[in-house]
């Protein structure tokens, strides 16, 4: 029983960290990993999703619907931002850093001014379960399932749907896709919107577990960038295994030495990966199989 208890505890922590990394980096993996736009406003799309989710849930919508609303609103905002700002900067990645950083500052400060410094939370649903004398939040288990579901859904979308094929073609060889009759501008907009919607989904999913403040997106951003950088350009060959490896490192170090070493472990890993595998995990895996 003691063995089962500690194995379950370890698996739970691993799954919890894995879910956090996957859910918070999915949107960034699409926008940064696939499209190559370094989106420093990622955290603010997350914040947007969380705020919309919390408002909708307090307005009486059931939580799953509220989360979906949060994701859709964030996606719509993303498509507007893409049309107005990002579209003009696809060939200028350094300028897009400045532009998205500016958007992030405007969003944080704008929310602070309009909605105030905090928003009342909505409380974590579902309660807890007892395993071997320790209690665990049931909602965190739902989050783990969501992370797996998210990966599965994205896989189907990008590899088994017409949208996915065209999106990948547009991003890999835009001229060729354009020559074959694809409306590449629209595809870019939709893909960016999808990335923003995924960020909004992350905000919605974590909204019930966190403090609602305008700067809440910042707590996601380090983990998301670390995961995407370690993973490289491909979500499935890169970001998913990267999240698993990082979750193992972070959960392990946090369990043994505390939160500080968990953070240090993440950052040391990303430094090593940048040095040894500049293309990230996916670059390395694809290179060896080629």
């Amino acid at each position: 029983m003691a063995l089962f208890q500690s194995v379950f505890a370890m698996l739970y922590q691993f799954g919890d960290t894995f879910a956090f990394l996957v859910i918070s980096c999915a949107g960034l993996a699409v926008i940064f990993g696939m499209m190559g736009v370094i989106n420093l406003a990622h955290g603010e799309f997350i914040m947007c999703g969380a705020y919309v989710t919390a408002s909708a849930a307090r307005g009486g919508l059931p939580l799953p619907l509220a989360i979906l609303t949060g994701a859709l609103v964030a996606g719509a905002v993303g498509m507007v931002v893409e049309r107005l700002v990002i579209r003009h900067l696809y060939q200028r990645p350094l300028d897009s850093i400045i532009a998205t950083w500016g958007i992030s500052l405007i969003a944080t400060q704008g929310v602070l001014i309009v909605l105030g410094s905090t928003m009342q939370g909505i409380g974590t649903p579902l309660g807890s379960i007892d395993v071997g004398g320790r209690s665990y939040s049931l909602y965190r288990l739902v989050l783990m399932a969501c992370a797996l579901g998210l990966l599965g859904g994205l896989y189907l979308l990008f590899y088994h749907s017409r949208f996915g094929v065209i999106a990948r073609a547009t991003i890999q060889k835009p001229q060729m896709a354009y020559a074959l009759g694809v409306n590449t501008g629209r595809m870019y907009g939709l893909t960016f919107g999808l990335g923003a919607a995924l960020a909004g989904l992350a905000g919605g999913l974590y909204a019930p577990t966190m403090t609602m403040v305008p700067t809440m997106g910042a707590t996601f951003i380090v983990e998301s960038f670390v995961t995407v950088v370690v993973g490289g350009a491909d979500i499935f060959v890169g970001a998913a295994p990267a999240a698993a490896i990082l979750a193992l490192i972070k959960a392990g170090l946090t369990a043994w030495y505390g939160q500080l070493f968990g953070q240090i472990g993440l950052l040391v890993t990303v430094i090593l990966v940048i040095r040894i595998l500049p293309g990230g995990l996916s670059g390395w895996l694809k290179g060896t199989t080629r």
């Binding site: 320790r134 910042a218 505390g258 939160q259 968990g262």
Partner: peptide
């Protein structure tokens, strides 16, 4: 006794440490 870096928002492991 556990010290948490500023800005950390995920406490799963910490909660388990306390319960242990």
């Amino acid at each position: 006794e556990e010290f948490i870096p500023l800005g950390v928002s995920q406490f799963g492991q910490t909660i388990q440490n306390i319960q242990a």
